[in-house]
């Protein structure tokens, strides 16, 4: 799988990096922060968010439903993932993450050598308030800071709002297309 994807010729960025606090379109203060790994309560915040997530907004089987499946999913991808969380009044309302596309994450010496898969979820009550864009930009800014260069994702082909959001920050469609559209972005290691 690795190394087979088409990336844009030119890098995108620079992107803002966490921590930051923004005011969303509903005048709510939203705190954006990077979470190193799912330690010290950070996992609990995100589990709570996914428990409140409307299953109708799931994409390609994630997030799963039910607490044990949600925990299992986050723990499986959690150890080596890169996470940025958006919070309002101390509760997680958005989560964006990168997961390394490798069979052996322990062998990662240089983040630039591997490709990272991106996913982003925002709670329904906080959608269409500009949080997704800020969360996405801050994840990419944080990724560039830690030396990640190649990021890809898949999105359901009919999900035009999501595709437009990804294009706005610099993602381009790769050749691969079926029910899912694959997209990729190149980050500038200088930030």
């Amino acid at each position: 799988m690795s190394g087979s994807r088409q990336y844009p010729d030119d890098p995108s960025g620079p992107f803002p990096a966490p921590p930051t606090t923004i005011e969303d379109r509903e005048d709510r203060p939203i705190e954006i922060r990077a979470v190193g790994s799912f330690a010290e309560g950070a996992l609990e915040d995100v589990v709570e968010m996914y428990l409140a997530f409307d299953p109708a907004d799931r994409a390609q089987g994630i997030p799963p439903t039910g607490e044990s499946r949600i925990r299992n999913w986050l723990e499986t991808i959690g150890e080596d993932s890169v996470n940025v969380v958006a919070s309002h009044d101390g509760d997680a309302v958005g989560h964006a993450m990168l997961v390394p596309d490798t069979d052996d994450p322990s062998a990662i010496e240089n983040n630039a050598e591997i490709e990272w898969e991106l996913a982003i979820f925002v709670l329904q009550a906080y959608q269409q308030a500009g949080i997704g864009t800020v969360l996405l930009e801050n994840l990419l800014g944080h990724a560039a800071e830690i030396g990640i260069e190649r990021v890809w994702l898949t999105v359901e082909r009919w999900n035009n709002p999501a595709i437009a959001l990804y294009e706005r920050v610099g993602f381009e469609s790769t050749g691969t297309e079926s029910f899912e559209q694959e997209m990729a972005i190149l980050l500038d290691p200088e930030g």
């Binding site: 390609q60 390394p100 596309d101």
Partner: peptide, 14 residues
């Protein structure tokens, strides 16, 4: 399954 756990159906399946 993608690394993220997303189900991916390829062009042949479609």
């Amino acid at each position: 399954l993608s690394p993220m756990g997303k189900i991916q159906l390829g062009p042949i399946t479609e």
